[in-house]
Design a protein around this nucleic acid. Structure first.
Lengths: 123, 123
DNA sequence: TTTAGTGTATTAGTAAGATAGAACACTAAA
DNA sequence: TTTAGTGTTCTATCTTACTAATACACTAAA
């Protein structure tokens, strides 16, 4: 797996998992790859994966059955959607708009970029 | 100064300086606060400030007169605008749109958020 | 020339993220 | 009971960002 920028790897793994849940690829009750398995898959140390799992477990997104593995929690989707939406509205969007202003990019141009994006990612 | 998240402090300082230039608060030829001065102002180590300055000097945004100080470079505004606009179109916007999709936020809602933002930051 | 304010360079230390390897405990299934 | 696959814990090491303190070199002005 490719890790980018200044974000710690364990948080990038958290994002990866969150995205799989938000996109409904992984659903409630589903078992995640084991700590060791995932570590091999994405080429990081098992301890780093464990840190990501612990982080998500503390936020009730996944839970653990000792000796068996980690599973997507009951309300994982709702919890994540709530966390991420709040973050989007309170932090991401304002920061994004601020950058737009700084670069003198108009909302009309943003709408144009969005249309282009949608054409490329027909979803 | 408040530093946030996982972004290294020296890069947050770089952003701070870049924003002052992009917003035309600091103009071509203007002298920046000295390494020691700025370090005290924003409460970081002088070496950390120096790292930010060196970073920007390498990108031709500021330049240095030994024994005198650092100054905003001739084409700093254009250089920054170019760098940041490219980054916005190639990276920020696509990532932002991707998050929107993941959270099922429509472009109409984004436009609504933008209107709200503009009301609060009458610029 | 002297002085104060610049940048520059060096060395050392701290803290967090990440790696590495090993040992241990629990669970399910053979 | 045994075994393989889980999670868990621990200790040690490495790297990077950052801090800290100091010394040195350059410049402008008194």
């Amino acid at each position: 797996m490719e890790f980018i920028g200044t974000q710690p790897i364990y948080l990038q793994i958290v994002d990866l998992i969150a995205e799989n849940i938000l996109s409904r690829k992984w659903v409630e009750g589903e078992r995640l790859a084991s700590v060791r398995e995932l570590a091999i898959q994405i080429e990081v140390n098992p301890n780093t994966v464990l840190r990501s799992f612990t982080y998500l477990q503390n936020r009730n997104v996944i839970f653990n059955k000792r000796g068996i593995g980690y599973f997507v929690a009951e309300s994982a989707y709702e919890v994540l959607l709530n966390i991420k939406r709040t973050e989007f509205i309170k932090k991401n969007a304002p920061q994004f708009f601020r950058t737009m202003d700084l670069l003198d990019i108009k909302i009309s141009e943003l709408n144009r970029l969005y249309t282009l994006y949608k054409k490329e990612h027909h979803s």
